[in-house]
């Protein structure tokens, strides 16, 4: 089983990295691109087992450790 976790800065948090990428894209002619937010992507390998239990535990890990709820949101997918 594999877990895919995407962590992005919260909307209210200034994201200078995203802003820089957006400016660079515009500079290269990709003017159609609006706001850019740069986050993190994690892949976790898990032993096969109870999907729901795994999801609960990973959600807890995301909240406690892998993301900082003050500044970040996360999205968790299991496959």
């Amino acid at each position: 089983m594999k877990a895919k976790i995407t962590i992005t800065p919260k909307r209210a948090v200034l994201d200078p990295q995203g802003k820089t990428v957006q400016n660079a894209l515009a500079h290269l002619g990709y003017t159609e691109v609006g706001a850019v937010r740069v986050g993190k992507y994690l892949e976790l390998e898990l032993a096969d087992g109870d999907r729901e239990a795994a999801r609960r535990r990973l959600a807890e890990a995301c909240h406690r450790f892998l993301s900082n709820p003050v500044i970040e949101d996360y999205r968790l997918e299991l496959e």
Binding site: P9, V13, L14, P16, N68, V70
Partner: peptide
Amino acid sequence: LCEAGLLPGALIRNRSL
């Protein structure tokens, strides 16, 4: 201390990157 919740808020990347 912020990560541990002993202080409120967070420290993020400098605006200059």
